[in-house]
Design a protein around this nucleic acid. Sequence first.
DNA 1: ATGGCTGCAGGATGCAGA
Length: 263
Amino acid sequence: MRIATWNINGVKARIETALSWLEEAAPDVVCLQEIKSIDEGFPREAFERLGYNVETHGQKGFNGVALLSKLPFDEVSRGLPGDPDDVQARFIEGVVSVKGGVVRVGCLYLPNGNPIGTEKFDYKLAWMRRLEAHARERLLLEEPFVLAGDYNVIPDGKDAWDPRAWVNDALYQPESRMAFRSLLNLGFTDALRAVDDSPGRYTFWDYQAGSWQKNWGIRIDHLLLSPQAADRLQGCEVASHVRGWEKPSDHVPVVAMLGFEGV
DNA sequence: ATGGCTGCAGGATGCAGA
């Protein structure tokens, strides 16, 4: 089973690019972030034509997440628990059945948090505490569980072309990185790092300043695997070539391969 | 390398992103 995460930076602006990659890579489950669309405006038929079941959690203008799956969803839930006043659409979770069990997938768009020293950074850290609490609950289920998305966290210096350029950025603050480590230390496996610990495995290149051409990238899109999912891990790849396509997102897809009977 | 771009809402340009 191929499970992908991709911040597509606007589903309506990216529809042709998205469909091209889905046809090329044929992932079984896809976590999309920054759809920037309300549910009613999501071009679901285009994805359904490729054989996907579609579940969205959108809002007007910004944010928004979606799940695509070739297998039908047994359950779907929208929103991250822990703050009923949070109106930002940044989390959706679904369960699909495979032979002998289930796979649970959480799709997240973690707040950027810039600039530091403002309520935006406080919101980021609070959101990460809520995510950890939710993840802790889900791990009790002892299921294959994949928590995938745009974490907006650069975990390590080797995850940036020039870490010094990020020292005052919310994505690389010690508090952000510690919260990510705390989440990992619940028992998750960073899928890419389980198969490749080399530097330069970036998932984002800014639109500005020729960042792609200069390879000024960062790694901020991650798939975290529960022990039951990590046991199935067969590989993980960053589809970096997609950044060079026409009308690209500033993020590229990351795909983890999990072995299940039949998929 | 603190944004030189891009998408969205709305119908000009301001906001948000990372």
